[in-house]
Design a protein around this nucleic acid. Structure first.
Lengths: 213, 213
DNA sequence: TCTAAACCGACAGGTTGTCGGTCGATGCGC
DNA sequence: GCGCATCGACCGACAACCTGTCGGTTTAGA
């Protein structure tokens, strides 16, 4: 049977299927045939809409990142909230556990398995490109308000974002003790790097954590 | 023609070939057939020595990491040199450009291309596992000497090592201006995080950079 | 001579991407 | 309202490749 749909709609169907399958079996573990079956289309159709399997991954990650960036920008833009808190909220946005993600956690589960290194790399790059500018602006705002004193806002933000990736990752550290230590170290070092007053991050951070978890 | 060799020797031959090929074409871009041809052995022989293609990659990375860790430990162990300088030297060890690597730069060139995400991930993990403990000890030594004041030696080291990966990477930043900024930010933030005296890292760092480049 | 480690290469099974051809909605002249 | 041309969406057989297996063979050495 043959069903014709608009290109954009079909593309989204394919991405939906890819998202579920990648989440369940990982990128390498999913064949284009699996996607075909789930969407219910033929081989040629898939390659009519996407040039390659990797292009599907790229499109999917872009879609995921778009929603995440939107959240981050919303969190960052609320001018009623103090800057410190906005920074924390924005950083938490990146993390599926603490960010209340609309997308399945399973994707993130998979992302760290060795078979999905490509997925992981692309997502991380997307994070750096997308979230870093948002947070950098906040840091500069804090500088202007005189509550931060950072010589290198962008680079410092890069450092923090990069580390937050492993600090908030329960699938990595091994012992839970180590994980907790990383989070504490992250908060502490963030204060130091931003030149914020000692303890000024700790309190709102602790608050948000309990809210979120 | 049939040539029999000791297992260890053959294994090394295979790793040599894999190293050259991965360096030239990347991991995904190299087929086991390519390795077979280069070593001059048959399919079965390869799989007699290694269980899978990925196991070849693992063994190769372990071999590379071993030599790198050895260099790092040598740099870290020289008790005649002040701690600050040892830390810098050790960090530079990780970087192929600044570390005077025995292995080909080409491997590192490849490592950042999207096709080699797996290779990249495994190498980075090896770095974290291998070098972080070495540097952590140095940081603790600095703490004991009273020239550093770090609350979280290990986690701070993790942060620095992680960021050094992108700071010293000429293939990433795009504009050379940005790259230089990252290096400056790295030095600056290292001082701050370690609680070292302002400027105490800058001087030896600059010195080593000119020595190395 | 016997054994076991090292080696061989055909082969099964699975994967990605291509390509010529088909179908169906849409617009147009009539 | 009705044939008809057009083109985007779709199909599935197929080529090319790639990894890992397995039964069998060779060689070194006890």
């Amino acid at each position: 049977m043959r069903i014709v749909k608009e290109a954009a709609e079909r593309k989204n169907e394919i991405l939906d299927a890819a998202e579920e399958l990648f989440a369940a079996r990982g990128y390498e573990g999913t064949s284009t045939g699996d996607i075909l079956d789930r969407v219910g289309i033929a081989r040629g159709t898939l390659y009519y809409h996407f040039r390659s399997k990797e292009e599907i991954l790229d499109a999917l990650i872009e879609r995921l990142n778009r929603t995440m960036i939107a959240r981050a920008e919303k969190a960052a833009g609320d001018r009623n909230i103090p800057v410190v808190e906005r920074i924390i909220r924005t950083i938490l946005c990146m993390n599926p556990e603490t960010g209340g993600f609309p997308i399945g956690h399973e994707v993130m589960e998979q992302v760290h398995k060795p078979q999905n290194a490509l997925m992981h790399q692309k997502m991380q790059q997307g994070l750096l490109d997308g979230v870093v500018p948002v947070i950098t602006r906040l840091v500069e705002e804090g500088n202007a308000q005189g509550i931060f004193h950072t010589g290198y806002p962008q680079e410092t933000t890069e450092m923090l974002v990069l580390y937050s990736g492993i600090a908030f990752d329960s699938r990595l550290g091994g012992e839970p003790e180590q994980e907790a230590r990383r989070v504490r170290a992250f908060i502490h070092n963030t204060e130091i790097l931003l030149g914020a007053e000692s303890g000024s991050l700790e309190a709102p951070m602790a608050l948000l954590f309990t809210q979120v978890k």
